[in-house]
Structure formats: structure tokens, C-alpha cells
Amino acid sequence: MKKDVMRRAIGGIDPRLVESADAEPVKAPRKSLGFKRVAVIALAVVLTVCGLLMLNANVRAAVLGFVLNWEDEENVRIHWNVESEEGEPADAVDIHDVAFGYLPEGYVAHDIPGDPDLEGYDPRIRTVRIMPAEYEGMTEGELSSVPDQIIVYISRAGDIDWGYGNGSYDLTYMSKINGMDAFMVHQIYEYEGESYEVGDIMFSDDKITVNIGGIWEPGFDETIKIAEGMTW
């Protein structure tokens, strides 16, 4: 199909569709909180205080150590705290309170420098490889074929624009881990007709793909290998 055909074809859609989309949306009437307003504000204050406390590494480790756990290899799952925005369907949930814990003992983390000449390069995204310390000194080529690694793409929320096709993720700043900025991840997504939740691990041949969030773009290297028995 020649370039621009789709764009022009969308331009020629049934005018009723355009009119419908142009009509002012009907918004649900605001409910008066009345006496509940104080309770809502108090709850917001409590959650803010808890959120600030979570910035403390020890507090976070204690909480996440309880939340994050591994099941058996066949059905490994990372558990995340999930809050849904009011009234939103489950497949449009923003996931909060998700964080990486500390690096497991015996593992190291390194930045993987991006190539500014490659399409999709975005200096705001950091790529970090978390791997067993014994792999130190291996070349990139050697590392691409060994197991027990996690490659994490991390960035700051609000700085990244969506839809560039570079696989950027909508993440939120959370903490520092071993000198790196570490972030929460959110997004539930569908890929090839299947629905996946953040934290699901899919087995594909000998590669294990972890959905740590975001929308997979075609051609983007989304394969992440995960260490068996890794604890956070």
C-alpha cells in the first residue's frame, strides 16, 4: 500500500463517525463527597507518608521482600501491588507500588551503552544488564548467548514520549540500586493476541521473556533472560 494512502483513507471515513467523535462527551455528574471529603484527604495524607517512607531503602526491602516472591520454574511470577484507577477496566490498569528490590548476592549490574547512530536511540533510556559476577569480562557477543541475565530498560517517567518505536517504557523513579536509578514499571499489554500482566513470564523456546511493562514494538529486542532462583 502506497505511503499516505492510509492517512488519506482515514480522512475519507463516514462523516457520521467524525461527527460522533466531535460531539461533546457526556461527563458523569460529580458526586458530592460531603462528609467523606475529610476521610479522602486523610487517606491521601496517609498514603503520601507511606510513599515517602518507602523511599527509605530498608523500609522498601522489608515490604518488597514480603511482596515479591518466586514460584516454581514452570509458573514463575513476580507479584506486584496493583491499584486500579477508579472505574477503569482491568486491561487499562496503571500499576503502582512496583519496584525492583536489591540485587541478589553474587550479581552485578552494568550499563549497556546505547548507540546514538542507531534508529530509536534515546539518551534518556538506560539499559542495564544484571548478571552473575562470574560473567564479568565477557564480550557483548558472549553475553548474548549465556543464561541468567536480566536486561532492564529504565528511564524517568514523564520524560519519555510514547510511540517512537524505540521500546521506551513508562516508568517511575523509585530508588537507587547499586548506583543505578531504578524505577517502577507499569502497563498491562497485549502481544500477538494474548493478554499479559506485568510480571508474567512467558516461555518461548529457550528464552524466557519477562514483561516488565511497556508496549513491545516490532523489532525491538525485548527478550530478557532471567536467572533461575533469583531472589530480590
Binding site: 462527551p25 461527563k27 487499562a92 496503571d94 502497563q187 497485549e190 508496549i215
Partner: peptide, 16 residues
């Protein structure tokens, strides 16, 4: 802003 949806929701709807 028009529909009162979050950004993630809009992006997901468009993608799907």
C-alpha cells in the same frame, strides 16, 4: 482531557 482518560489508557486504546 476531553474524555477524562489517563495517558496509559489512551495509548493502549490506540495501539489495540
Amino acid at each position: 482531557r476531553r474524555y477524562g482518560f489517563g495517558k496509559s489508557k489512551v495509548l493502549m486504546m490506540l495501539k489495540r
